[in-house]
Lab assay of single mutants.
Amino acid sequence: KRPMNAFMVWAKDERRKILQAFPDMHNSNISKILGSRWKAMTNLEKQPYYEEQARLSKQHLEKYPDYK
Rank of each mutant, 00 (worst) to 15 (best):
L44Q: 14
L19E: 12
Y50W: 04
E45N: 03
K68P: 08
Y67E: 15
Y67M: 10
P3E: 15
E45S: 02
K39T: 09
H60R: 08
R55Y: 04
K1M: 07
Q59G: 11
H26F: 04
L44V: 12
A54D: 14
L44M: 12
M41N: 01
P48W: 06
L56D: 09
M25P: 01
L56E: 10
M41C: 01
L61F: 10
Q20Y: 03
S57Y: 12
P48S: 05
H60E: 14
P65L: 07
E52I: 02
S28C: 11
I33C: 09
H60C: 12
M41A: 02
A11P: 00
Q59A: 13
Y50M: 06
Y67C: 15
I30S: 01
V9I: 14
M41F: 02
N43W: 11
D24H: 05
K12S: 08
L19M: 13
W10N: 02
K17L: 05
D24T: 10
R55T: 09
K12A: 11
Q59T: 09
N5D: 14
Q59H: 11
K32P: 01
K39D: 08
L61H: 14
F7E: 07
K63A: 13
K68V: 09
W10E: 01
Y49I: 05
I18L: 11
A11M: 04
S28W: 13
D24E: 11
H26W: 05
N29C: 14
A6C: 00
Y67A: 14
W38D: 02
P65M: 08
I33M: 11
S57G: 09
D24L: 04
Y67T: 14
N43E: 14
Q53D: 04
Q47N: 03
R16Y: 05
Y49C: 04
S28I: 08
Q47V: 06
K58Y: 07
P3H: 06
Y50S: 04
K32Y: 07
S36F: 04
A11T: 01
Y49D: 02
S36N: 15
E52M: 07
Q47M: 09
P23A: 02
F22A: 10
N43Q: 11
Q47F: 05
P3R: 11
W10V: 00
S57P: 06
R16D: 11
A54F: 06
F22D: 15
S28F: 09
Q47Y: 03
R37K: 10
L19R: 12
M25W: 03
Q20G: 04
S28R: 12
N29M: 14
D66V: 08
P65S: 07
Q47A: 12
E51P: 00
G35I: 13
I18Q: 01
A11I: 01
W38Q: 02
P48G: 04
K17I: 06
D13G: 05
A11K: 09
I30G: 00
N5G: 07
Y64P: 14
Y50A: 05
R2V: 14
